[in-house]
């Protein structure tokens, strides 16, 4: 019930506003909000897909993407460079998809206002995904193998970008990738 007024960080928000000031003066001060809408439209669905492929429980993938958006956009330093926003978002989704961290989001979610009928809205699509052959096969992979494959082939990253996002070496990316592909092939043959 008590809030301080915004502490002004000089030169921070002004640098983000200068880009699009000419487009709409009414919204000039709130370019971070604009940026949010833009990022949402451009990347929300693909990030949902990323989370869905990484996660074992697809029901929480929208929670993961929401949390990633909130974290990245509440840090002004992260949205200053719109080019990097997607990279930050993907990295955060990957990190949040690891189970230890996901449990903490659930804790956070209980504290804050829950999102209205989040799961029910898309149950059909998630159920379909649960029965997907690829998804079942992905589940048999090691976490790292799965992460490499998803980033490489779903997020269309280069091997160097994958290495950067996961914080592992280029050699490891290649190794996890080829082993992951082999394991996936075996798993797909088993379920086919």
């Amino acid at each position: 019930m008590i809030a301080p007024w915004p502490v002004r960080v000089t030169g921070d928000s002004s640098s983000t506003t200068s880009d699009s000031r000419d487009t709409d003066t009414a919204m000039a001060v709130g370019t971070t909000v604009d940026h949010l809408t833009e990022t949402y439209r451009a990347h929300y669905r693909s990030l949902l897909g990323l989370a869905a492929l990484l996660l074992d429980d697809t029901a929480s993938c929208e929670d993961v993407v929401q949390e990633a958006f909130i974290r990245v956009h509440s840090a002004r330093s992260r949205v200053r460079d719109p080019e990097k926003t997607l990279a930050y978002l993907r990295q955060t989704v990957v990190n949040l998809s690891r189970s230890a961290l996901r449990r903490r989001i659930l804790g956070l979610k209980l504290l804050s206002k829950p999102m209205p009928d989040m799961a029910s809205a898309e149950e059909g699509a998630y159920e379909l995904l649960e029965r997907d052959q690829l998804k079942a096969a992905m589940r048999t992979l090691q976490r790292r193998q799965r992460e490499v494959l998803v980033l490489r082939y779903f997020a269309d990253m280069t091997e160097a970008q994958v290495a950067d996002t996961l914080g592992i070496s280029l050699g490891s990316v290649k190794a996890y990738g080829s082993r992951g592909l082999a394991a996936l092939r075996v798993a797909m043959e088993a379920t086919a």
């Binding site: 669905r45 897909g49 869905a52 929208e62 999102m115 989040m118 059909g124 995904l129």
Partner: peptide, 11 residues
């Protein structure tokens, strides 16, 4: 596999 996924309307 993830083609059918959409963000919920309130997202």
């Amino acid at each position: 596999a993830v083609q059918g996924l959409h963000g919920s309307p309130a997202a």
